[in-house]
Design a protein around this nucleic acid. Sequence first.
DNA 1: GATAATTGTAATTATTATTGTTACAGATTT
DNA 2: AAATCTGTAACAATAATAATTACAATTATC
Lengths: 177, 177
Amino acid sequence: MNSNSQFAVATHIMAMLAGNKIYLKDNACTNSSMIAESVNTNPVVIRRILSKLKEADLVISRPGPLGGSEIARHPSKITLKDIYTAVEENGSLFHMHYCEPNPNCPVGGNIRASLKETMDKAESSIKKVLSKTTLLKLTNDILERAGISTSQSRKTIAKILLNKKLEYEKVRSSVKV
Amino acid sequence: MNSNSQFAVATHIMAMLAGNKIYLKDNACTNSSMIAESVNTNPVVIRRILSKLKEADLVISRPGPLGGSEIARHPSKITLKDIYTAVEENGSLFHMHYCEPNPNCPVGGNIRASLKETMDKAESSIKKVLSKTTLLKLTNDILERAGISTSQSRKTIAKILLNKKLEYEKVRSSVKV
DNA sequence: GATAATTGTAATTATTATTGTTACAGATTT
DNA sequence: AAATCTGTAACAATAATAATTACAATTATC
């Protein structure tokens, strides 16, 4: 349990909210327990990440019954870069030496500054790539992989999704019995 | 102490070996203790990373007195991508969910495959950026930052580096007394 | 207004990757 | 033969991440 999987989980959350927004208009609001069951983790873990996504104005949440989270704007207006930026911790996937290198050595005293330039360039290229995939595209790609053709009408897809949801709840309750 | 700094340390090692190879021809061989003092860590940590660099044919090591490590080819023929590839652990800086998402959910069951495509593209772009910086360029950049003009003759630079080495050993011994 | 459901977050514990350290066999030079 | 270094195994220390527990604050419904 290490090595930061928050980008993957955040994307998972956003894909769920996007699917619900686009296809289940009336049921766009999703609570943290439902998301947690799909991600297979604790609701608090989800709420913690949701908190960052909210900070970045990517989702909106409401407490109370009928509460939950909803995507803040259309998935075509959100890219994976937005999600990446929302949850990135230290500003980079790259990491410098844990202890400060020896400043009395020409290399030790200057490698960090020099290496940082290259790392920054690499980081920018990551963001550029991520900005090319919209959440809409990712979500539809996921649904297609799930055998749900996204060229069908919204209502047809909504029915399929709601059916899957029911099946799933059945599985869940049968497991719990 | 987490989050893999091996790329930074490996680059540090390679920059030292590169500088020694280019400017201190006769003293190109460097032992793990000397590197460890520059990196500010334990020699075994260095030898562990050297072991990966050797695996990737980037360095050559020899045991015994006068032993140590030497760069395997000219620094102009090595890029930061080579170093990155040599020490990368799991093939990517990106990480998927720690636990497997719920396969009964359309999103949970398919997000990994879908997300992997984008992550792979991002990873490729990192490698492309890193392949554009040669170890020679990085090493000279470091020396310039250390106030050592690399436009001088090799012998002049060698003298400066050897002098720095002596100063440094003086500091070290005075600290140890 | 009381009740139930949900978010938001603090505090604590568990897990695990990475690094640091010790120890020692094997190789090589003198 | 002695000294010095590499190579690696084994174990301990550290720290980042995630999981869990707990509870106040908010909101909908009756």
